[in-house]
Design a protein around this nucleic acid. Structure first.
Length: 798
RNA sequence: GCCGCUGUGGCGGAAUGGCAGACGCACCUGACUCAAAAUCAGGCGUAGCAAUACGUGCCGGUUCGAGUCCGGCCAGCGGUACCA
């Protein structure tokens, strides 16, 4: 009989439908294996999407064979710009386009034959889902973690909306690539900075790729230093600066404030006022890209002097856009001798440079800033001290004198959370003339998204919702008076920051998640997805989880115990995309070779964590392999298990299991090929393979190629599903061979091989090796003999 | 600039410090066929008829032995970027 993949796959899909293989029984432990849910785009799935989905499904099925009941759900991150932009173009409600895309995605996902439980599907645009997205916001609002602020934010002129810092990559909008500008807007913010320390510390215990942990920790950006107050001469103002180099305080020769610093206009002298105002205006209109790209220093002197609290020296006060308003205190003390940027500024404006740290302990000629550690000079009582010690000693002194404090600083900023777009969750608050901003009552949730005539973003900082008077005008939940609804919507990240909590009970209308389901399933055991969310979704989800822990909704602080980032599938060296025209669709491949072949090839293509280049011809090899397996079993005449077969069987289980556990899935597949080739040889010579080995091979293959495995399981006369089995176990003793091959080296160079008994003693092995290599040892003196048991002999000879 | 990852045949890639190139693709030869496809048998790093020599980005080191460990470079990719 031939391997008919179409028939087989159809048959087993129908069978699984009737009798599912992943069912709950009292003896099974729960395992939660999660995929990053997709945005249902109109383009459909390509073979790159398959990779992650196949990987998580193979892992899920592997857990089933280990006796777990697995939660392996799928859903839709369906709010977002593509559907909205499509709506603007075609005048179709985004909900309609989204529903069509979801249907198409589901059809394509069906082809993977993953064990998704569609009863647990979630969709972030479903009011019964976003009710809880809004509920979380209300709770954050109650706790003061969601707040309104007017400030200059990242603004994408093309998407016409504000962006979070995490959404700006190299000065451009992460979504559309347009250059991001600054815009002063009233914004909803989430106080993620309140969790900076916990977000940083808890990374340690996670089984995540080190790379992702590093990226998050860099993004949070903790640094230690001091805040120091400087009095401004001729005014009653003090300016606080943050520095990580308090050891250089004696070398401060000027001070720079960010143009946006709140005290600039209080400090500036009348004489310098016009110039300063012009500079501030210019800085406000420069895009962040310009500000970044242009390293040339600019600035304006404010006409005043600050007083160095340690030595009373007068420091001219400047403004310059190289100082960032939203990091530290927005003002710095400048030590040109020991900071490259300050050095450049001092050179440009001819400011004093005082060296206070020296390599030798003597004053040196500085041609550039000296940023290393050294000996303190020009620093009063601290002279002669190591700068590394002064780093602690000077802040101690400042604290004692009451002019400074030791502090830590983070690069992480609060999360700009409002979007001026239509297709997102309405922010559930109202603005009341008398009561101010008031959260809606919990029982009013969800605040559903109304229909609008135009989805077009206004670009004014208001969302299209602002145009719907009958929706905007409401009553205040507190005083009952007239009030207006908030018209900004939430970012796409809102729905994805907690969706993993909803899967266990998507239809629960009483609470976000029941205590019982939460304790049973969460946190997620294995999370599979792309690296692109390293500091976006994954950071936000951790923040949400910590908040929900604080208010008692969940009893764990980290949502994802283990994370795996699968590599991209590339074609012609580039990520697959419609615009590049290099998209490979799985549809024809499934048709021609079957789901099992495509699943297996997705894993065979390369190490799962690395990017891999797609080759259409490669799948042929896997298809041939499955045909070989089919033939091996279909034409087998059952034989008794020989000692050699038993040895091979245990070694196969050993190899496959170890590679599985270390996630070397590409070598698992090559292992299958290797052993199958061996079995075919033995079959040819001996006439048949024993049944135990056949059954073992079928079970090991099952997570990868479930359809053919079920069919073969049935064909060898076994009842029930192959997934009702336990993953086979190996016995180290039975893997051992009587005779082993030893490689011989002479002075580290290969010089043949010999066969010896497995338990042969060293002297005997060495004697045999020398005999075998006698010709090449002739006339040489043996200096040293090394025997590594069971592996190699090295004879060092001169 | 700083941080991280990756460099192995024509290609994708294997190798607990111990036989470099497993497994697969492509290619070559042969069998089967009227022929082709499929399948089967064999070959396939470079040079050489061969014995053999040389080969894991480059230079050096440790070691009986290095793709693997250490030091110094180079290239590609990713993150970050005036963060004081």
């Amino acid at each position: 009989m031939k391997y008919e993949h179409k028939q087989i796959e159809k048959k087993w899909r129908a069978n699984w439908e009737k009798s599912p293989i992943n069912v709950e029984t009292p003896d099974k432990k729960p395992y939660y294996c999660l995929d990053m849910f997709p945005y249902p785009s109109g383009n459909g799935l390509h073979v790159g999407h398959w990779r992650g989905y196949v990987l998580s499904d193979v892992w899920s099925r592997y857990q089933i064979l280990h006796g777990y009941h697995v939660l392996h759900p799928m859903g839709w991150d369906a709010f977002g710009l593509p559907a909205e932009n499509y709506a603007i173009q075609k005048k179709v409600h985004p909900a309609i386009a989204t529903a069509e895309n979801v249907a198409n995605f589901k059809r394509q996902l069906h082809d993977i034959s993953a064990i998704y439980d569609w009863d647990k599907e979630v969709n972030t645009t479903d009011p019964n889902y976003y009710k809880w997205t809004q509920w979380i916001f209300l709770k954050m609002f109650e706790k003061g973690l969601a707040y309104e602020k007017e400030m200059p934010i990242n603004w994408c002129p093309s998407c016409k909306t504000g962006l979070a810092n995490e959404e700006v990559k190299e000065g451009a909008c992460d979504r559309c690539g347009s250059t991001v500008t600054k815009k002063n807007l009233r914004q909803w913010m989430l106080k993620i900075t309140a969790y900076a320390e916990r977000l940083l510390n808890d990374l340690e215990g996670l089984e995540w790729p080190e790379k992702v942990k590093k990226m998050q920790s860099d993004w949070i950006g903790k640094s230690y230093g001091a805040e120091i107050d400087f009095e401004i001469e001729g005014t009653d103002k003090k300016v606080k600066v943050f520095t990580t180099r308090p050891d250089t305080l004696y070398g401060a020769t000027f001070m720079v404030l960010a143009p946006e610093h709140e005290l600039v206009m209080d400090i500036v002298t009348d004489q310098q006022k016009v110039q300063a105002e012009k500079y501030i205006f210019d800085a406000s209109t420069r895009s962040s890209v310009d500000r970044m790209a242009d390293k040339d220093k600019t600035g304006v002197f404010l006409g005043r002097y600050a007083v160095n609290p340690l030595n009373g020296e007068k420091l001219p006060v400047w403004i310059s856009d190289y100082v960032l308003a939203d990091y530290g205190t927005g003002a710095i003390m400048c030590v040109p001798a020991h900071d490259e940027r300050d050095f450049a500024f001092a050179k440009k404006f001819d400011l004093k440079i005082t060296q206070v740290i020296s390599k030798t302990g003597e004053l040196e000629d500085l041609e550039e800033a000296f940023v290393e550690e050294g000996i303190m000079i020009n620093s009063g009582t601290f002279n002669g001290m190591k700068s590394s010690e002064a780093k602690a000693a000077i802040p101690d002194y400042l604290e004692k004198q009451g002019i400074g404090t030791k502090t830590v600083n983070y690069k992480l900023r609060d999360w700009v959370f409002s979007r001026q777009r239509y297709w997102g969750e309405p922010i559930p608050v109202v603005h009341c003339k008398d009561c101010g901003v008031v959260g809606v009552k919990e029982e009013e949730l969800p605040i559903t998204l109304p229909d609008v005539e135009s989805y077009e973003p206004t670009g004014t900082g208001e969302s299209p919702l602002a145009a719907i008077d009958e929706w905007v005008n409401t009553t205040c939940p507190k005083c009952g008076g007239p009030a207006k609804r908030e018209t900004n919507t939430m970012p796409q990240w809102a729905g994805s920051s907690w969706y993993f909590l909803r899967y266990p009970n998507p239809h629960n209308d009483k609470e976000l998640i029941s205590k019982e389901d939460m304790k049973k399933w969460l946190p997620v055991d294995m999370y599979v997805g792309g690296i692109e969310h390293a500091v976006l979704h994954l950071l936000y989800a951790r923040f949400y989880t910590k908040f929900l822990y604080d208010i008692g909704t969940v009893d764990f602080e980290e949502p994802f115990t283990r994370l795996f980032n699968q590599g991209m599938v590339t074609k012609n060296g580039a990520k697959m995309s419609k615009s590049k025209g290099n998209v490979v669709s799985p549809d024809e491949l499934v048709e021609k070779y079957g789901c099992d072949s495509l699943r297996m090839y997705e894993l065979f293509i390369g190490p799962p964590e690395l990017d891999s280049e797609w080759d259409d011809r490669g799948i042929e090899g896997v298809y041939r392999f499955l045909n070989k397996v089919w033939k091996l079993i279909d034409e087998n005449k059952e034989a008794d298990a020989t000692r050699e077969m038993e040895r091979l069987r245990h070694k196969m289980i050993h190899d496959i299991t170890l590679r599985m556990e270390s996630f070397n899935l590409n070598t698992v597949v090559s292992g299958f090929m290797e052993y199958t080739n061996k079995f075919l040889d033995i079959q040819k010579q001996a006439g048949g393979i024993d049944k135990e080995t056949i059954k073992t091979l079928i079970i090991l293959l099952a997570p990868f190629t479930p359809h053919i495995s079920e069919e073969l399981w049935e064909s060898v006369g076994e009842a029930g599903s192959v997934f009702a089995n336990e993953w086979p176990v190996f016995d180290e003793e039975k893997m051992k061979d009587d005779e082993i091959e030893i490689a011989i080296q002479i002075s580290g160079k290969m010089a043949g091989k010999i066969k010896v008994a497995a338990d042969e003693d060293e002297a005997s092995v060495l004697a045999k090796a020398k005999a075998a290599a006698a010709a090449r040892l002739e006339g040489k003196e043996i200096v040293k003999e090394i025997y590594v048991k069971g592996r190699i002999v090295n004879i060092v000879a001169k």
